[in-house]
Design a protein around this nucleic acid. Structure first.
Lengths: 228, 228
DNA sequence: GTAATAATTCGGTCAGGAACGAACAATGAA
DNA sequence: TTCATTGTTCGTTCCTGACCGAATTATTAC
C-alpha cells in the first residue's frame, strides 16, 4: 500500500510552511499577486511560482490575469473550510500558546485587513451600505449605484481616483472572525483613509489593530446604521 | 518568515501517505494496534512506531496500553473533522475519479466495518437497542444491562465468550457515512456473526458490502424496531 | 524457568522536493 | 524604440525525513 488516500496529497500541499503562509495570506479573502505571496511566504519569486503552480493545479487556489499581474485567490469554499478546520485543530491541540485575552476582542471589533477595515465594524459598514442599496451586484463583482456613489463622495472619497486605479473598485471580502463580509478593494481602502482623515480612529498597538475614538465610534455608528 | 503557521505542521503530519493510511483506518472509530496500523500503512513496524509517536505527541491520536498491545485511536472530534474536510476537499477537487454510482447507496445501507455491522442498518441496530435501555453508559464506555444481556443471549450471542476476550465488550463507533453511532467491539462482532448464522445477510461483491435477504431484512427490522 | 510476540529505539541509507540564481517571456511605462 | 517590472522555466544544490534492519525492552504463553 504505497500510495496513500487522495486527501493525503492535499494535506501535504497545505503542510509546507511556504505554501501555508501563502494560503494564510489568501484567507483574508483578498486576491494577491505572485510577488506579494512570495513576500508573504519569505521565499524568492521563482520558488513561489512553483508553489503557486502546484496549488493551482490542485484547485486550491485560482489565478486571474490582469495585465502583467496575476492575482491569486482561494478557489472555493471547501478549501477555506479545510484550512479553517486545520486551524481549529492546531489551536485546540497546541496547548502551548493561548490566544491573547484582552487583545482578541479588540481585534474582533476593528482591525485593518491590509488597507481596509475589517472586524465587526467593517462588517457593519458593508452591511449598512448594502442594506441601503449602495451596491449593485453583477456577475463579475459588485459596484456602486448612483446613490452609493453620492454617499461615498459625501463621506470624503475621491471616486474618480478610485476608478482610475487598476485595482478592483469594490470587493466583498469574507471576514473569517465573524463569517460575514466587509468591504475591500480600492473603495474599502479609500473609505478607511477617509475615516482616518476625519479622526474617527487611530492605529493601535498591534500592526493590525485600530481603535475608534469615542466621538469617532458614535459618528461611525450614525453614518452606518443597522438597517433591517 | 521561515516558519509557517501552526496548522502547517498538522497538515504535514496528515499529508504523509503512511500516516494518512493509518488515520483513514482509525477513522472507522475502532482502536487498532500498532501492528495492524503498520499493516494498514504498508510499512514495517519500526517505521510505523515513529509515525505513531509523531501523531500522538501532536494529539491527533491517543494510545491506550492493554497488556502488550497498544491501541491507538483518533484523539478528538477536531481531528476527525479536519480529516473529513480534507476528504471533502480532495473529492471535490479531484474531478478525475467519480464516486461509484450504484454501489454507494448499498454501502450506505449496510456494510462491514472490520467485523461488525455499519451503515444505516448498523445505526438502526445500535439506536434500537439504546432506546430500549440495553446499554448502560459509564465513564469508561458502555456495557450491557441485564435486560440487554438477555436480549443478545436470545439473539444467539455467547455473552460469556465475549466477556472472556481481551477486546472491549461494547464500543459506540461513529458512523462517518451517516454521522451517527453503531455498535462495535466484541459484542458488535458477535451480533454480526449471529446475524450471518441466521441467514439474514450475505457478503456482497465488495469486501465491505453486505446484502440482506428479503426475509432477513424483515426479521432485522422486527428485531430492531425504531423506538421513540 | 524458556520461548514467542508486541512494540520501541537506534544507526545508516537514500530519494523527494524545497530552495536559489540565471535566463527568458510578457506586459506596461519612459 | 528602450527600459523597468512581473512572472515563469530550467538546472543545480542540499537537507529533511521516510524507510529498513538489528538490537532492546516488556508482556504473555508454555
Amino acid at each position: 500500500m504505497k500510495s496513500g488516500p487522495t486527501y493525503a496529497r492535499v494535506a501535504a500541499l497545505i503542510g509546507d510552511p511556504a505554501r501555508a503562509n501563502m494560503l494564510s495570506a489568501l484567507m483574508s479573502g483578498l486576491a494577491l499577486t505572485a510577488r506579494e505571496l512570495a513576500q508573504e511566504a519569505g521565499v524568492q519569486p521563482s520558488t513561489a511560482s512553483g508553489h503557486l503552480k502546484a496549488l493551482t493545479t490542485a484547485h486550491l487556489i485560482e489565478c486571474e490575469k490582469q495585465g502583467r499581474y496575476r492575482y491569486y485567490r482561494i478557489a472555493n469554499q471547501e478549501t477555506a473550510t479545510a484550512i479553517e478546520s486545520l486551524q481549529v485543530l492546531s489551536q485546540h491541540n497546541g496547548l502551548l500558546r493561548v490566544r491573547p485575552g484582552p487583545k482578541d476582542p479588540a481585534l474582533r471589533k476593528a482591525r485593518v485587513c491590509y488597507d481596509h477595515l475589517a472586524g465587526e465594524m467593517g462588517v457593519r459598514l458593508y452591511e449598512s451600505m448594502a442594506a441601503r442599496d449602495f451596491f449593485k451586484v453583477a456577475a463579475d463583482g459588485i459596484s456602486l449605484t448612483d446613490v452609493g456613489e453620492k454617499f461615498v463622495y459625501d463621506f470624503g472619497v475621491d471616486v474618480q481616483q478610485c476608478n482610475a486605479s487598476r485595482r478592483p473598485m469594490c470587493l466583498a471580502c469574507l471576514d473569517w472572525s465573524v463569517r460575514r463580509h466587509h468591504l475591500a478593494g480600492a473603495l474599502g481602502a479609500a473609505m478607511l483613509t477617509a475615516a482616518f482623515d476625519q479622526g474617527w480612529l487611530m492605529r493601535g498597538s498591534g500592526s493590525r489593530l485600530v481603535r475608534f475614538t469615542a466621538a469617532g465610534e458614535a459618528a461611525f455608528r450614525k453614518a452606518f446604521p443597522i438597517v433591517s
